[in-house]
Design a protein around this nucleic acid. Structure first.
Lengths: 337, 337
DNA sequence: TGATGTTAGTAACTCGCGTTAGTAACCCGC
DNA sequence: GCGGGTTACTAACGCGAGTTACTAACATCA
């Protein structure tokens, strides 16, 4: 910048004014053009570090993700979510920093990110239900957006409407005539996503006047293999279900294997609905009916909310719930009379 | 830092010396302990922006990825790769910035990242084969690591050994007695990964004295659906292959559907080998024999190489080729006599 | 006693920018 | 020809660190 100033025969201040389009500085057009021209010739690019130091902003937002890949991988969710976030924030010149939080670390590593002024805001994916650090940072007025939920209601968050998704899935099975409907969750019920989906399941049953049978409800744990045993248990029941709503496509993969291992057919003997609509769902045998999560849109919403918070436009307590979509394929069929 | 200095009754310089463990500064232990104690009490954390400005380093590395998700999604590759990179660089206090490059943009957006001192180095995933910007940045001594290859040999890069992987897969089919082996590529042959895999295919055939038959070689294009038509074309041949090596598991998914649509059986009528070992490969029917890509290790290697370059330890022209592994499942069988 | 170290620091500069307060030169009207 | 307003700038400070060059006070030795 000093170079530009020298060549243009003006002070650095003037150059700064011109390049930043500062209003109320009466600079004649001739000078302005000359400075801009020289800046272009020198291919001047501001040093963002100095800029950050002067303005106090970093133009960086961190995405804090869990180290364990089990929740992440298995589908393209993370990738799509990230694309959604970057799509929104890069348009406003922000950048995304990926930070792998170690789940077992005693002290949070991400608080440091904002306290050392490395990033302006924190996007936290699936925080622990009562993360003290998150609450503390929020009270310190750190811009935070959660993907998922905590027990502190007023922290802004973004999530998919798990209850509605599950409700739709089970409601669909009921409409097909099924009355005995099992459920294998995506994760232990201590996870919010898991218990919300269970709520949706219960709500659909209740509306149809079907009593809740706890022997039909079992927990999966993220992976395909975790769906195998629960499904076999359901099949071994004296009065097995004619349909099962599985809270995750990955878990459903294991469930399908269990059904096959018993020599039962999908959907003739048992209808199956998954959740997530992973890429592979359309290639299972038969293709899996499932609930689609809008990962890309979720990322966009999260990024958008973050920008609003940083600009001070957002109200506390904002929670954005994105609707899911039922994707009917061939793993579901009318309940045989 | 000034606060710490004031409370300790010393100058800011002294505090800086102590906190940074600067050698050859004879500071008595009493003073040292007092300053450290006060810093701890005040929970002092350095402002990294100021630090960056002073040192000229940003401690940030950008991962430049393509906007199109076709190459990324479909498997957990991106996620695993990112985990590998962050695992290595965060240990040295570096952070990862994700930058979505727009493939159609005329001028590169990532050159700016380093020219404005936003990041210290560039990790570029699957660059275009003759990206001028990359070459220019490299000549400007920007630390760059490529994932994939370009035509400029001396830019450090990391990749999986595509040729060796393909060779192993085809060699395995030959060892099973197959002589008529088809190939459907993962992508158009203008992609380096694709032509390298074709090379491996050819090499295995040549070694076994099997003549190359170009009617057996067709191109896929990333997606599952792109594998459907080529496979049908192979099946429709007057003398169809007894085995097919597909350069991508996703593409193989479409191929499997094509085989089923013709009423043929896998592996009895046709053996199939994929590439990538995506998560679903073990859940196809039958489970797919494939070539595993070590995505996490690839990320670690890339991060490691980047750190070495930044430290000035790396030699130009470094290219790290990671070996693949053949994962035998049930989609391959001995060639029926 | 005076020269020479050594100890324990500190003042002041730098990094590259934003920003505030101020000024010199010119113009206008009376 | 003098006060007041406008035009076209600039000097200087601050952001929060790292870093260099210097000093004042004391100790040691010939």
């Amino acid at each position: 910048m000093a170079d530009v100033a020298k060549l243009a025969g003006v002070s650095r201040t003037t150059v700064s004014f011109i390049l930043n389009n500062v209003p109320d500085t009466n600079i004649p057009d001739a000078t302005r053009q000359r400075v801009l021209q020289i800046a272009r010739e020198l291919n001047y690019m501001p040093n963002v570090q100095a800029l950050n130091l002067a303005t106090g902003k970093t133009m960086m937002i961190a995405l804090v993700v869990r180290q364990t890949s089990e929740q992440m991988s298995g589908d393209a969710f993370a990738g799509e979510f990230i694309r959604g976030v970057t799509g929104v924030i890069e348009a406003e010149n922000y950048h995304l920093v990926i930070h792998a939080a170690e789940p077992d670390a005693r002290e949070s590593t991400y608080g440091k990110l904002v306290r050392t002024h490395k990033v302006d805001g924190l996007l936290i994916s699936s925080p622990l239900v009562n993360d003290q650090e998150v609450r503390l940072l929020y009270r310190e007025e750190t811009p935070i957006v959660l993907h998922g939920a905590t027990d502190t209601q007023d922290i802004p968050s973004v999530d998919v409407d798990n209850r509605q998704g599950a409700y739709m899935a089970v409601r669909y099975l009921i409409d097909l005539g099924h009355r005995r409907i099992g459920h294998i969750s995506n994760a232990p019920f201590s996870y919010a996503s898991s218990s919300d989906r269970l709520d949706g399941y219960c709500q659909a049953l209740a509306e149809a006047g079907i009593p809740y049978d706890e022997s039909l409800v079992l927990a999966g744990e993220f992976t395909a293999s975790s769906g195998y045993e629960p499904m076999r248990a359901l099949l071994d029941l004296p009065n097995p279900p004619t349909a099962v709503f599985v809270g995750s496509d990955m878990v459903a993969l294991g469930a399908m294997e269990a059904i096959r291992s018993r020599g039962a057919r999908i959907p003739e003997d048992i209808s199956l609905v998954g959740f997530d609509d992973i890429l592979y769902a359309r290639y299972t045998m038969p293709p899996l009916t499932t609930v689609r999560i809008p990962a890309y849109e979720l990322g966009r919403s999260a990024g958008d909310l973050m920008l609003k918070i940083i600009r001070g436009e957002s109200l506390p307590g904002t929670r954005i719930l994105l609707p899911t979509e039922l994707v009917v394929r061939r793993s579901t069929i009318k309940c045989p009379a």
